[in-house]
Structure formats: structure tokens, C-alpha cells
């Protein structure tokens, strides 16, 4: 049975959408990094470690936080919940920040707390810690969000019984803009009313649902 998407969250252009509906926004004059912090405060979650993360991890962590408030965690098995994410720029903005600290011998101050965030899956690790997800992990880098690949890869993980649920999506950020689309996918279940199937067509629809 095809797995089902049970919730999805978009963050872009200073707006947060949950299941297609805007739940938080700020004007275009607000810096996108400040917006992410404000949106996190708005979730009501107390998690001081959030503010120590790099900008990229903050974005993914926020998207997961908004998403997981919508998921009935009593019905999922965290031990077999996976995290499969992708993006375009890997961690380029944080890479540039780290590079500045090592560019010259005169001002050579590499920081371990910056370096650790120069791997894109650190964001997945932060989400795993917060939600106790110990299932499959993968991180792919591609030019654009690829519903074809996401459905193939994740549905295979369900088929082989390696996961019972998965937090998945596209978390992208460069100097100029950000674009997060994360969704939760669970084993197919006839009893569920809203049946958004984890198919290429459905993912394409959901990814573009807030494009106006």
C-alpha cells in the first residue's frame, strides 16, 4: 500500500504555512534570518539549543517543529522514523562563514561550533535529537526538489520495512533566499480520511500549493 502524507509545512518569503494555510508571517522588510527566529518563538517551544544552531539548521529545525505539532506522536514509532532530506546548496553559507575564519594566517580562528555545521545532515541530527527519531537517515544534493527521487527512495524504505514513518523534504538556503518544504509520511492506512498518497503527482501538487 502506498504510504500517506499526513502533514506538510512550507516556509518561504517570510511566511510559514501548515497544510497549505498561512500560520505566521512577517513583512518583506524583515531579514529572513530574523524571521526564522521569530517564527520559532511563535511555536511556543522552549529549546535554547535552537539559538546556537547555524542559520541553515535553524530553518530545517523550525520546519520540523511546526510539522511535528500537527502529527499525532502517540501513533508513531520514533525508533523506526527516518529523516530523508535534500537541498541545492548543501551548507554553502556556513562554509563561507568558516572559510572567512581561516582565509589568512593573520586572522586564523577556526571555530569547532561553526565547522560542525558545514555538513548538511547536522540539521537532520538536530531534528533527530529533538524528536527521538532513530530510523534511516539520508541527505541528497540536487538542483531542485525532486519528487520522483523522494517517492522512489522513501517508498522503497517502507517496502523493505526499514521505516514506519519518515520526515522528508527540501530545506534550501543561500545568501538571498530560503525555501523549506517538509512533510511527514506514514504507512498507508485505509482508515485515514485525508488520503494524500506519497506519489510523484501529489508531492508536486503539495510543493507548489503555496505558489501564488
Amino acid at each position: 500500500m502506498t504510504p500517506q502524507i499526513t502533514a506538510f509545512c512550507h516556509i518561504k518569503k517570510n511566511q510559514v504555512f501548515l497544510n497549505g494555510k498561512s500560520i505566521f508571517s512577517a513583512g518583506p522588510e524583515v531579514d529572513m534570518r530574523e524571521f526564522v527566529k521569530a517564527a520559532f518563538r511563535n511555536t511556543g517551544t522552549k529549546y535554547p539549543k535552537f539559538f546556537k544552531m547555524d542559520d541553515y539548521s535553524k530553518l530545517g529545525f523550525l520546519a520540523a517543529e511546526v510539522l511535528m505539532k500537527e502529527v499525532d506522536v502517540s501513533t508513531i514509532e520514533a525508533k523506526s522514523t527516518g529523516i530523508v532530506l535534500s537541498n541545492n546548496h548543501s551548507t554553502l553559507t556556513t562554509d563561507q562563514l568558516f572559510q572567512e575564519s581561516i582565509q589568512s594566517d593573520e586572522s586564523f580562528f577556526p571555530s569547532p561550533s561553526v565547522f560542525v555545521y558545514t555538513l548538511p545532515n547536522i540539521m537532520a541530527g538536530e531534528i533527530a535529537i529533538r524528536h527521538h527519531f532513530t530510523g534511516e537517515n539520508a541527505f541528497f544534493v540536487s538542483s531542485a526538489f525532486d519528487p520522483d527521487w523522494h517517492t522512489f527512495y522513501i517508498n522503497q524504505l517502507f517496502d523493505s520495512k526499514k521505516i514506519s514513518a519518515c520526515l522528508s523534504g527540501w530545506v534550501e538556503m543561500d545568501d538571498q533566499s530560503l525555501d523549506a518544504f517538509v512533510y511527514f509520511v506514514e504507512k498507508g492506512n485505509d482508515l485515514r480520511n485525508e488520503s494524500m498518497l506519497h506519489t510523484v503527482e501529489e508531492l508536486n501538487n503539495l510543493y507548489k500549493i503555496n505558489d501564488k
Binding site: V116, A128, E136, N137, A138
Partner: peptide
């Protein structure tokens, strides 16, 4: 083959 996360510490 399989992967898994510790959900414990990032470094």
C-alpha cells in the same frame, strides 16, 4: 544495508 541515527549528540 541500513542507516540509523543516535538521536543523542551532533558531534
Amino acid at each position: 544495508g541500513a542507516t540509523a541515527n543516535d538521536a543523542n549528540h551532533i558531534s
